[in-house]
């Protein structure tokens, strides 16, 4: 009885605590969400007038995230790199500290590999994989003039690689979905990205400055270059993470 009373007491305290947190968040956010001031047009007008001329990209969103604010994009790529590398490190380290009965391989239906493969899926994914890869390359390389770009294209490429690995009966059967190859592509494209950001330092025009000025390569070349490197890095990284989660390889 006393125990129950104690529980009751705790739960009232707990409810009060939750209620307070909610009230505080709602009260703080309400004025910000309800603010009705007119959305600023300065940046839009400036970019509409000068964006394409200064960066060469018709897609103004691309011109911002690979031109005006490319440094943010470098940071974003690094977040992805750390997340991929950390996730693989964390999930591939199994076998230690397992609670009894909670090892994945103990469940019914055999090991992970068998559970995921059916003939239907192998045929469909195997045929679709290359098509998706080509689409991904298109999205990646035409990001400066159409919706898309390195991140979006990279994710599509990654799904193409996952399809190929599902379709060929194991990710180690195809060179594109081989975990070692993916790791190499990711590492090299990250190195190239860091070097590309520093081209301006070596040629003396400044960090992250566009080194192409029209002779012979037009300025948009820098955006395409960055898009390609980010696309390869993201594609290889996410595919690597997914292949690791499929559990075909010993990482």
């Amino acid at each position: 009885m006393a125990d129950r009373m104690k529980n009751n007491k705790i739960s009232i305290f707990y409810k009060l605590q939750i209620f307070l947190a909610f009230a505080a968040v709602a009260a703080v956010l309400l004025p910000v969400f309800l603010n009705d001031s007119h959305w600023p047009v300065f940046a839009r007008d400036y970019l509409e007038a000068n964006g394409e001329e200064q960066t060469g990209a018709a897609n103004i969103v691309s011109s911002i995230y690979l031109g005006y604010r490319a440094y943010d994009t470098l940071g974003e790529t690094i977040v992805l790199l750390v997340a991929v590398s950390g996730t693989i490190g964390i999930i591939s380290f199994t076998g230690k500290n397992l609670a009894t009965g909670y090892n994945e391989d103990d469940f019914e239906g055999g090991n992970r590999k068998n559970r995921k493969r059916t003939v239907l899926m192998e045929v469909v994914t195997g045929k679709l994989g290359p098509v998706i890869l080509i689409f991904g390359l298109y999205v990646m390389l035409f990001g400066h003039m159409s919706p898309g770009g390195g991140f979006q294209g990279g994710v599509v490429i990654a799904s193409g690689i996952i399809f190929i690995s599902l379709g060929t009966g194991g990710s180690e059967n195809n060179i594109l979905s081989h975990s070692g190859v993916l790791a190499k592509i990711e590492a090299v494209s990250f190195l190239l990205l860091v070097l590309a950001s520093a081209i301006g330092l070596i040629t003396g025009i400044g960090f992250f400055a566009n080194p192409f000025n029209g002779n012979p390569i037009p300025p948009v070349g820098y955006i395409i270059l960055l898009n390609a490197m980010i696309g390869l890095k993201v594609g290889a990284g996410i595919a690597y993470m997914s292949v690791a989660m499929l559990g075909d390889t010993d990482l």
């Binding site: 839009r44 964006g51 969103v61 011109s63 940071g75 977040v79």
Partner: peptide, 25 residues
């Protein structure tokens, strides 16, 4: 915000570019 003939006014592209970053993160 993909510039072609006669498409004005475009929406503000800055929030879209910022949110690309926020989504990936």
């Amino acid at each position: 915000p993909i510039l072609e003939e006669n498409i004005t006014p475009i929406v503000d592209p800055v929030p879209q570019a910022l949110m690309l970053t926020a989504i990936v993160i």
